[in-house]
């Protein structure tokens, strides 16, 4: 399932809780999980307080201060800080479905996070209630710099093919605390900008800077599988992000769904 939305500002959080509720209702799933995925590299999703609109305004402001739009990137066409915001906030949320409704906290609302609007945007919703197959896969790689990134899309796709699962979700976990996984643009200088922005936020001389960065970026990701393929945006690539290399890294994949 998917729905479109239109953003009206450069930075804006749009409440999409109702649309998600409708998608869950439409799916007819009574008990299961729901993955909401944003197929863009300059947007994200978060669960936040939705009662007082000042809260998300403050979150937008704090993110803008941390990753300023024009900071050092005035020569490029768009503010790449938007990509850094996307990788910090994340492009997916997973929620529990109980008795046909999403089971979340009473203050929690889902927000689409626009970081380079205004524009037309898309949101994917996947519900899972009765999968018949699970598959465990592994990806091994070698990073080459202290900070580095490795595009792991091809290996993820290979594992999905091997699993035989055509419809479901894939959870990736890098079981170490000094490297992360993110879904973002692997071209247009974006990975370097991500590394720079992370470095500015948490300088390398800080104790355990790699671990702090890992918690900010996250070392797990969830992607949707439909018709045997990954449901991603055109520019989105799955990347392993090294903060303490060079090292050998392993990433585990759990694929759940139907053949």
């Amino acid at each position: 399932m998917e729905f479109d939305l239109k953003t009206t500002k450069v930075n804006e959080f749009i409440n999409i809780t109702l649309e998600i509720d409708e998608a869950i209702e439409e799916s007819g799933v009574s008990d299961g999980i729901c993955v909401v995925f944003i197929p863009h590299t300059t947007a994200g999703i978060t669960l936040a307080e939705g009662v007082d609109p000042d809260v998300t305004r403050d979150v937008v402001m704090a993110l803008e201060r941390q990753f300023p739009w024009e900071d050092g990137y005035i020569h490029v066409k768009w503010g790449k800080a938007a990509n850094a915001k996307s990788s910090s906030v994340g492009v997916s949320e997973t929620m529990i479905i109980k008795n046909g409704k999403k089971y979340t906290g009473s203050w929690q609302q889902a927000f689409f996070c626009e970081f380079s609007g205004p524009g037309r945007r898309k949101v994917y919703v996947k519900t899972i209630d009765n999968p018949d197959k699970t598959f465990l896969g592994k990806i091994s790689l070698q990073t080459s710099g202290q900070t580095d990134f490795v595009d792991i899309m091809a290996q993820v796709e290979e594992n999905i093919r091997e699993s035989g699962i055509k419809d479901g979700i894939c959870v990736l976990h890098l079981p170490e605390t000094s490297a992360g996984i993110t879904i973002n643009d692997s071209e247009n200088d974006v990975p370097r900008v991500l590394a720079d922005e992370m470095g500015k936020m948490i300088p390398t001389k800080t104790n355990y800077s790699a671990q702090v960065k890992t918690s900010i970026m996250g070392n797990t990701e969830t992607v949707i599988i439909e018709n045997g393929s990954l449901l991603l945006g055109d520019r989105q690539r799955i990347m392993c992000f090294e903060f303490d290399g060079p090292r050998k890294r392993e990433i585990f994949l759990r694929i759940i769904g139907n053949e």
Binding site: T46, E49, V59, L63, E93, C113
Partner: peptide, 9 residues
Amino acid sequence: HVKTTIIGT
């Protein structure tokens, strides 16, 4: 709230 959005729930 900002930290929650950055770390994730």
